[in-house]
């Protein structure tokens, strides 16, 4: 029926039926991505695979093109070269506004929340539902909007508030509620904890983790927050030199001999985050053995001191 997608050569089991969840291994596959603006090259032969069911953190210095990478994957920024497949369907041969049949399978939280300012939070959550499933009854749509808002950790009163009446942290949560409104399998978060206080940021991290577990999400998380990286990311992709130079768990990344990685994870802030996390672990499992790597990482002298 609705699944009339032309076969792009992908294997049969990677094709996703309309009422089926994606079962392949990699919901996002990026190969040889090149992004150029004028004569400035942002990405040059970038490869990245995101595993199903993981939280992948994406880090990199300012201007390394983290957001551009995300915009390329969700089809807002047609790349100069390379191929991007999401749920086995190619994004790169399609126009930004073309109906791909996968836009209802992902949710995106933009940096500022990007809520529609003339609609209440609840109505914001209903926008994607109305767009994709206009046949749902208004009552059910209201129900869905309400529980999505509560699921994102907002109080009930927030449902009919306008975005301008919300604090920064609440806007992020409202944005998350809208991103979750279609029950996506893939969630893109662009610096969700930026601009939040440490308590709010930690709460948002925990929320992301809980939702990922409860809803079985795959999360593509752009962040600068070292605590988020340690706390919730299964793997971390490091963007530098116009490529993804490494994708691995945080402890493994810290072993790598790359200047930027060392400075990032073993700099004063990186170590503070790590210490905090290790202490946290210690307190939490006083009588359980602690992940050996975490402790070992503490023994590594910071990179800066080596050179001094």
């Amino acid at each position: 029926m609705a699944e009339a997608s032309t076969d792009n050569g992908e294997s049969q089991n990677e094709r996703v039926g309309r009422h089926e969840r994606f079962r392949g291994e990699y919901p996002i596959q990026v190969e040889g991505l090149v992004n150029r603006f004028g004569d400035q090259t942002i990405h040059d032969g970038l490869d990245l695979n995101v595993k199903r069911g993981e939280i992948l953190g994406v880090v990199g210095g300012s201007g390394t093109g983290k957001s551009v990478l995300m915009r390329s994957i969700i089809g807002l920024q047609p790349p100069t070269e390379g191929s991007i497949k999401v749920f086995g369907r190619s994004i790169t041969d399609a126009d930004p506004d073309e109906a791909l049949g996968i836009r209802d399978r992902w949710g995106v939280l933009f940096q500022g929340g990007a809520l529609f300012s003339t609609l209440t939070v609840g109505e914001n959550v209903e926008v994607p539902l109305k767009q994709f499933y206009p046949d749902l009854s208004p009552e059910l749509m209201h129900d869905i909007a309400r529980y999505k808002v509560l699921l994102s950790g907002l109080p009930e009163e927030a449902v009919n508030k306008y975005p301008s009446e919300l604090s920064g942290g609440m806007k992020k949560r409202a944005g998350l509620a809208r991103a979750l409104s279609l029950d996506p399998e893939l969630l893109f978060l662009d610096e969700p904890t930026a601009g939040l206080d440490p308590i709010g940021a930690a709460a948002f991290d925990q929320l992301t983790l809980q939702l990922k577990k409860a809803l079985g999400l795959t999360v593509f998380l752009i962040t600068h927050d070292l605590d988020s990286l340690h706390e919730i990311c299964d793997r971390v992709a490091v963007l530098a030199d116009k490529k993804v130079i490494a994708v691995d768990t945080v402890p493994n990344l810290m072993e790598l001999d790359h200047e930027w990685i060392q400075e990032y994870f073993n700099g004063p802030r990186g170590r503070a985050a790590l210490t905090a996390q290790a202490l946290d672990e210690l307190r939490r499992h006083m009588d359980e053995p602690i992940a050996a790597q975490t402790i070992k990482a503490l023994d590594n002298p910071p990179a800066g001191k080596d050179k001094a």
Partner: peptide, 22 residues
């Protein structure tokens, strides 16, 4: 197992707050 997990997450989140501003 998945259905149970989802129901645990979702149920109990009933509220009568109107979606639109009054």
């Amino acid at each position: 197992e998945r259905a149970q997990r989802l129901m645990d997450a979702v149920c109990g989140h009933e509220t009568d707050t109107e979606v639109s501003s009054p």
